[in-house]
Structures are given as C-alpha cells and as structure tokens.
Design a protein around this nucleic acid. Structure first.
Lengths: 294, 294
DNA sequence: TCTATGCTTAAGTTTTTCTAATGTAAAAAC
DNA sequence: GTTTTTACATTAGAAAAACTTAAGCATAGA
C-alpha cells in the first residue's frame, strides 16, 4: 500500500483544520500556490477530491472528512514522538561550542553577565575550530563565524563584523601616511580567509605590491594575534567584535583610514529542537542583547 | 515544534524494524546510501544518535527505542486513513477511459472475453482523447498511447506498436515497386504524431518529395482511417495492434517492405490506490494476457 | 591475514517542491 | 448592476531535497 507524498498529508491537515489554503500557507511559511499544488497532488494520488472549492472558502468532501481524523492522529503521534526525543537531558548545563578566538576575546569577557543573570545554569564552553557533533550530544549550541550554511541545523545571524588595523597606542602616528607605517612595522596576520582578504585589499588600496614576506608575523589564532598586537609587536588585522574591550580600555588603537566588512558573519546554530529548550532560549536572548547593546 | 523531514521518519521506521539499512533500502526500492543519508539527516535534525552502527548490524540507541513506537503508531494511522479513502466505491463496475480509436479497434473486439471470464463485473468504456479526471471518480483506469509520463498517477507499459502500410487485398501489387504504388493511390493519413512521422520516414526512404497534398486523405481518427482503408479507398498508415483482427481475417493486407516502430507505447494508468482494487487487478491480468498472447 | 559485508561519504544528477506572476470566478461593496 | 476584492488555480522557471553511483572504511568471519 503506497503512501502519498507525506508532505502533502501535512498540508492537507493544516488546510482542512483552517478551512483555507491561504491560512495554511501562512501557518506553514510557504506560498498559497505551494499548498494548492500539494493538495492537488494528494488528490491525484488518492484518485478522489478532498476539498470542494468555493470562491471564498473550501469545504471538506465526504472523503476528506473521512481522511482528516486519521491524518490528525498520525501527526499527533509524530509530534509527540519527536517531543519525547527532544527533551533537554540536562536543563541546568549549557554546552557551547565556540571558536577558540571568539571564546577568548568575546565570550569569556562577557559571560559573567549571563552567569549573574542565571546562576542556576552552569555554562561550559568548548572551544573548537569545527562544528562539533551535535548528534552525539557534544554541545547544545554552536557559535560560528561563517556563511550560515549548516545543513540540517537551524541557524540565525548574530552580527556582522569588520576587519580593522589595530596597534598599541603610540606605535604609529596616524597623521603620517599609512603607506609608510605599513612598510616600517611588522604586520601580524591571522591565517583566516577574511584577514588575508583584508590585507590584500589594504595593499591594493595603497598600491603596495613589494611587501616582503618576512615582514609578516603569521599566527594561526586571532586571540594570539591580538595578544601580539597588544604587546606592541606590530600592526594587527583584527575583527572589531574581538577587540572591542581593548578599544574601550584604550589598550589598542585602530587606524581611522581602514575598515573592510567581513565576508563571514557570526551565527548561532544547532539542532532545531534545541531552540525550544529553556536554557537555550535564555542564552539566545542574552546573546542577542549583548550584540545589540554594542 | 518543527517536525523533521517526514521521509526520514519513514526510512527510520523501516530501518529500525528491519535492523538494517540494507534491507530497508530493498524494501523501499532505493539504494542503501539513500537510507544512510536520510537517517543521518534525521539524527542531525533531532540532535541525537538513533542507531549504533556496528559492522554487520545496527541497533537502536536509547533515544531510538524511545522514538520508534511513536513513529510506528503514526504510520499505522496514515496507512489506515489512506486505506479507508482508497476503498473501491463500486466494486462491480469497471470504468475505463480509453482512446476512441483503441476502444473501437482493439478493446471492443476483445472485451467479450473479459466479460465471459468475469460476468459479475460490469464494464463501462469511456472513449476520450485526453486523460479524464480521476480525482472526480470519472474512471477507475485509463489506457493511453503515449510516453508514460502521467504525473501523480501510477502507470505501466502494456505494449509497443509499429506503423504499417495497410490496404484492401488486391488494391496494389506488392511485387511492383512501392514507389509507384504510393504515387498512384490515395494515401489515408491519421492526424497523429506517429502516423505523420511514419509517412515522412517512408517518403524519405523512397526519396519522394514531390507528393502532392491532394493525394492525401486526412482523417482525425485511426478507426475511421481503418474503415476507409477497409473500403478500398487507398493506402492507410495504421498501427499493427489496431488492425490485427483485420489482418487475421485477411480483410487487410500490409506491405512487406515497410514498418516503423512507434515513438509512443500503450500504458495502463491510474491513481496508485486503484491498483489494489479487485476488479482492477482482474482487468489488468486479463489485459496483459491479451497483449502477451499476440 | 584475507575476504566479504554493510555503513559512510562525496559528487553529480534527477526529482520534487517552491516562488512569482498571472488568470479566474464568485462574493461583497459600491 | 457594475466594480472591486478575495481566494484558489495554473504556469514556468528557480531552488532545494533526495537519489544514484562510485569509492572508502571498519570489522566479523573464513
């Protein structure tokens, strides 16, 4: 016994319960045409008409009325099953998977505010370069710097960022041409696409093509780049979000003539179900608040 | 509460019940890779592992065991609902939608054999050029001559066919060149892609480009083309399946030098559910038997 | 140790589903 | 009795999901 396309059954349920394709479309975040097509496909598959179409409303036919309760029951079971699975196994522990540099420069300096607000939640931060295995329960949520394409996971943008030229106050004189400053200082480079791109853009802008390789200090971690910059070892190409605390404290300065928007953005990502967990909702709210207060 | 992709739940059910992705794949007529991918997508979506993978078998994890009974129940309801809808409303009446020419030349001469075999089934034949509206219950099954693409419907090939040059015995002398015969007789043409194509192939083969238009008698129905041919009004381009009875009775002859396979084939088509109906199963068996006995 | 089995992964293709634009018919408003 | 509005239908083309093929990998069993 061949089942019809399952999605068409879901659409049927919504349309039947709301008595309207239009409302079902809104509820399901698709266009009305999508509903219309799925219902038609279901009807073709079953070989019978399920709705009487009137101009301003639809009614279930006899066959439709026969079908609805079964479909409804079926989806109740599916929902319940998924709900059982998706229950939070440890409501009082929040496991975050975060990029090492973001953890060091952004999250750690701010997390105490979250802990003060929600003292009953224990926060664990797992710094890792790649997304962890959510399936294995290794983390509840991830914060990533990327393009937002995390197949199978729910994700939302947190913020954009810019690459800035940063240095220890006094290291260079912002009134002298940038050109000169670049040539006469060490350049501290993070090995990451956005930083490399920003350097390239800067060089193009200054028409510098002959910068020597040894001029660069390459470090594979933005937090260490910042540390080196803080120590006055040269000029760093750093993300604004990561150095904001240092800028506020005037431990770093940025050159006023340079700024490049990053290709990547910060994303919050994780399995859809996790976003219903209480601890996750609290953290998400706090996180968005932190980004928006800047 | 966001449901996972519904198809992945179906695959999960099969895999869990069979304890094997491979067997599930066979049961669902897909490759084992498809199962593996769907299960992974489900796991990613739920954020937990559902199967322990061992080398030669898989086992449900605790979460998987929790999920299975709900999913199973859900699909039982879906199946039952669809079954209720798909019950045959008139088990003793078989409504066939058939092309007019096929009805006249093929089905009607043979249908009495089916009626003798199954006297309790009343057969109704609805000759129509286009597929009827199965949704409205206008027909149980359709027999079409086409490419087998009937979206939303189940279809299966019944037979292929060839276009032949047919004429009343004695009208032409098969030993004289075909070339001459074509020029000196009326040509009776059906307005249908396969017939037109066959005439074109014939003309190309005979290097005839100067055949005059009035030479042709155009008739928009293969049954009438046959009738005109039977009456000796000219040479017809006809499908073997349609003229077999006349060939057997020597009421028509075919030219031995010409035969072109049709692009189209005969298909049996209808909503999937109809193929479970008793009367449909009987008719299908009979129909296949008729085609195979040729 | 070697082989065979069954799951995984990756790339590319096919199929399905969706959107956007437009059409249509009837109810509601004027 | 028109005109407008509303909700569903239809279409073509774009986007997303699912599938297949082919290769890889780990391990149970010979």
């Amino acid at each position: 016994m061949q089942l019809p396309p399952l999605k068409s059954l879901l659409y049927f349920k919504h349309a039947a319960e709301l008595g309207s394709f239009k409302l079902a479309a809104e509820q399901l975040y698709v266009t009305q045409a999508a509903i219309s097509q799925q219902i038609r496909s279901l009807e073709t598959h079953l070989g019978c008409v399920l709705f009487e179409r009137h101009t301003r409303k639809i009614c279930l036919t006899a066959k439709g009325k026969l079908l609805l309760p079964h479909i409804r029951k079926a989806f109740e079971h599916l929902n319940h099953g998924v709900q059982v699975i998706e229950e939070d196994p440890q409501p009082s522990v929040l496991n975050l998977s975060v990029l090492p540099s973001f953890a060091t420069c952004w999250l750690l300096p701010r997390i105490s505010s979250f802990q003060r607000q929600h003292p009953h939640i224990r926060v664990r931060i797992d710094p890792s370069d790649s997304l962890v295995d959510f399936d294995a329960g290794e983390a509840d949520l991830g914060i990533r710097f990327g393009k937002g394409h995390y197949p199978g996971l729910h994700s939302e943008v947190l913020a954009s960022d810019d690459m800035l030229l940063a240095y220890k106050p006094g290291l260079i004189d912002p009134l002298k041409p940038l050109n000169e400053q670049i040539k006469s200082n060490h350049l501290i480079m993070d090995i990451c696409p956005d930083a490399e791109r920003a350097w390239r853009i800067l060089f193009d802008k200054l028409a510098l093509t002959d910068v020597l390789q040894p001029h660069f200090l390459e470090i594979d971690n933005a937090a260490l780049v910042m540390q080196a910059t803080l120590a006055g070892q040269g000029i760093g190409m750093l993300r604004r979000q990561l150095i904001q605390p240092q800028l506020d404290l005037a431990q770093l300065e940025i050159h006023p003539e340079f700024e490049v928007a990053c290709d990547y953005q910060y994303y919050l990502a994780g399995p859809v179900g996790h976003f219903n967990w209480h601890k996750v909702k609290l953290f998400r709210t706090w996180l968005l608040g932190q980004f928006n207060s800047l």
